[in-house]
Design a protein around this nucleic acid. Sequence first.
DNA 1: CTACCGAACTGCGATAGCAC
DNA 2: GTGCTATCGCAGTTCGGTAG
Length: 471
Amino acid sequence: MLAIQPKFPDSNPTWLEFPRTDGDASILPTNTQKIVDHDGHVNFMRPVGLDESTSINWRVGVATQLAKRMNLPEGPKYVLKTFPEGYHMYDHNKGPQSAPRHDPYLCGSVNVNRFRSVNEFIPHALWLMQDATMDRHNCECKYCAKQPQRAVTAALGLPGQRSPSVITSAPTRGPRPPREPRPRLTKPYAAVRPAPKPVKALTGPQQFLTPERNGDIMYALAHGDDRASRWFRKGELVWCALAPAIRGRTAEEDIIFWPGLVEEVHLKTQRCHECPRMASAKRCSRFVVCTRKHMMTADETRHRRPSTPRQHLRRKGRTSWKVRQWNVYKMKLLAVTHNYIVTDEQVVPYLAYAPSGQLLHAVTEVFTQIMSEIPIEEMDDNIQKVYTFDPLGPEDDMDGGFILKFRQAVMPYTLAIEIASNLASYWLPTDDWNCKFTITPPPLPPQPNRNRNCRRRHNPNNLNRHPCIRL
DNA sequence: CTACCGAACTGCGATAGCAC
DNA sequence: GTGCTATCGCAGTTCGGTAG
């Protein structure tokens, strides 16, 4: 203990001292003189004494949390004796001289420019207290860890609420001037409600579509190749086909689709090779995954030396493989904690499907039955079971196991449909977007008989080949 | 005594400006 | 372009005064 103790309102506090510091007094602010400019404004850093209210708030707030995290015995009132060596607290005064804005800052750290609040400083103080290596990577403060303060506060369980001021020995602000007594209202009284603040308009995306994506779509449309198109966006609400479906009493009561949100989209690419054996036997449109073995010529087969794709291309003059692409969606199934990986064929737009009347009737029936059986006090526990249900989990081996699974599915399915229907009110297929493209007509085959009347057959599939389509 | 009001206080995110 | 700093602004909380 020092011979001269810092002033503190509590009669017998337990002082905490920092065993080390990352402070350096030479970097403290120098604009500490109050200078009033020609507009009557000030802008200076007023040094705050250890016994001022702001300083005491910090010393108590930090020390309390340090004591808790360092497992010090409960009971005593812990207070920082001083800030770390080289640190000092300042009150930034800015604005009109009569009523400047006050921002308290703890300055002096060589690692952090300044701390603006108790919660900002607590993790750094803990690091100074505990980490003898002084390795900054071990510090969890927002500046060293480069995290938002909210994340730090939540991770460390710091007090989120603003604490009221402790007893002040030297208030940073003067006492409030007594208020003017309110004038007595003479009836009748008519109040005018102030106009509500205008609602802030949400800013939408600045770019509807990347040029690359636009180019891909143009190419796919022009070449009639829509297989690689991605039909669903991240975050979009869709129905996922369950494989296998959750069986009900009849086929009409099967739960075939479960609502979900597209969490991730991955483009899968596979090189496919036109199998020479298939091609020679019969012209076949099937392609198989290209392996080195498939790329062997007859000569190579004898000598067992496969050619590289480049050599193969050079020899043949053209590629004998194709690239197949498709999308894989990672779906977040609603109302349950499970994710589900599906391909394009297993996803249906939300507006393209609705559960049948029979299914909804069966679900309602079972739901009502379940709700009547569960005691109210067990409902919270039951909700936990809802989240953990796996729509793709196996049926029970026992007789009628599928009925048991259907029964387990009813509550999460009901919840999922409810969530989906709420989400659907915010659902939008796409932003307004004009799609314009030009199709180069393929060269006409030689006409065997020019005199024959050529009548164009109407093909509804060609409707979307119109050179200007608004999607 | 209680409800209400509004100023003061507090914490922290957002952002402009600057240096590199 | 990126990262840092200084500053601003907003929202939530606290607290003292007043009316009923």
